[in-house]
Write a protein that binds this DNA or RNA. Structure first.
Lengths: 204, 204
DNA sequence: CCGAATATTGACCATCTGGTCAGGATCAGG
DNA sequence: CCTGATCCTGACCAGATGGTCAATATTCGG
């Protein structure tokens, strides 16, 4: 059964995307409640009623953003391959996730803000899609620890550590910059640090 | 030179604290913009005008919270002692920070939310107090790596990793619970995991 | 126990904000 | 080039929200 997809004209597609881009910028900077439809409209170069012509409500824009970005967000974990070399697979995941934080910091902050406030718009997604995906990858990692190919670590906490360590640089960007002062891009140093960390931690 | 401290009656002290407690609960759950003075007043068991009798504005409550909690938040890092055993000192810091996340999750989320949205109310605190404190501890750790007492890791990223790994469990609590399902307290497993991680990473 | 200082409140106000609507502009197909 | 569908807008509305104020209640020192 196919879900009814509304036909969209060229102009509709363009403007919907313009709005979503603007909304991402505003929501990620100020949060859901801190953002007004007027701000989104301004950032998108449209009038407020026009924005509401494309989306029925502010909440609809927000939800549209979240679901539209979910695949992007989960893709790096999906690629984790049971057949590959364990350490390289995990390091590859770390690398992909760190690059995602570097290249999509607004998306990172959007999800962070949502989860931080209890994920009121994604509870089902978290406990279904994310839960299942993680469960699948956890069993792969558990296989690796059981066979002694990597050190004995709790797979759940291993995954949490990858999320925490990589997203930190995007989510708490201002803090990182305030502490390190004006200097080179933190991501280069971060990658070196994380490679050292995970190689050491995972060595059998 | 002493800053003029207003004399506070017993009742003032009590109600100011009641308000700050209620505000912490509300702000940490819904963010600054998502929280109304009425919600704070209700949670505090006071009327809205009465809340505004003790604090001149919603923003004043928020700032009062942040500055009041700053010491609590930085205390674990302050205790890091150049004279102690390096690995034990760092592990001690990790432990204290993890317990702080477990016992003060609302405080953690309050700071996380503030930093996430660009720290509009704490920029100077970040780039002065926090920057200086971290700089001091970074030089201690740099001494340890230079003398070969711990592995060569970038001290800044080491501190970031401690922040990220410990605060993750408080800040993204719903996600952690959604992924792990109903089970035992995640903090026990987290402490075991983090001890393994940091011992391995830091071994000379 | 009294009067002054301190607390508390209901009523109120100005502004902001999400959302609506009727009508006008623009576009696409015939 | 005509017509219907799509797109866009100014004006508007209702409710929420931060904050004020005059008046009342309570507390506290003497």
């Amino acid at each position: 059964m196919k879900i009814q997809q509304p036909r969209r004209s060229r102009i509709q597609n363009k403007n919907r995307n313009v709005i979503l881009d603007a909304a991402l910028q505003e929501f990620s900077a100020r949060g859901f409640s801190g953002t007004t439809i007027d701000q989104i409209a301004d950032a998108a170069g449209l009038s407020k009623p026009n924005v509401l012509y494309y989306f029925p409500s502010k909440e609809a824009i927000y939800r549209g953003l979240l679901v539209g970005l979910l695949d992007l967000w989960l893709a790096p974990l999906r690629e984790l391959d049971a057949e590959g070399d364990p350490v390289e697979q995990i390091l590859g995941y770390v690398r992909r996730k760190l690059l995602l934080s570097r290249d999509y910091p607004n998306e990172s902050r959007l999800f962070a803000s949502e989860v931080l406030h209890g994920a009121p718009h994604m509870t089902e997604v978290l406990s279904e899609d994310l839960h299942d995906l993680v469960a699948e990858k956890v069993s792969i990692i558990a296989g690796w620890t059981a066979s002694g190919r990597i050190a004995e670590v709790d797979p759940h906490h291993l995954i949490f550590s990858i999320w925490a360590l990589t997203q930190h640089y995007a989510d708490f960007d201002v803090q990182v910059r305030a502490v390190m002062g004006e200097g080179p891009d933190p991501y280069a140093g971060a990658m070196i640090f994380l490679e050292h960390l995970f190689r050491r931690m995972l060595a059998p």
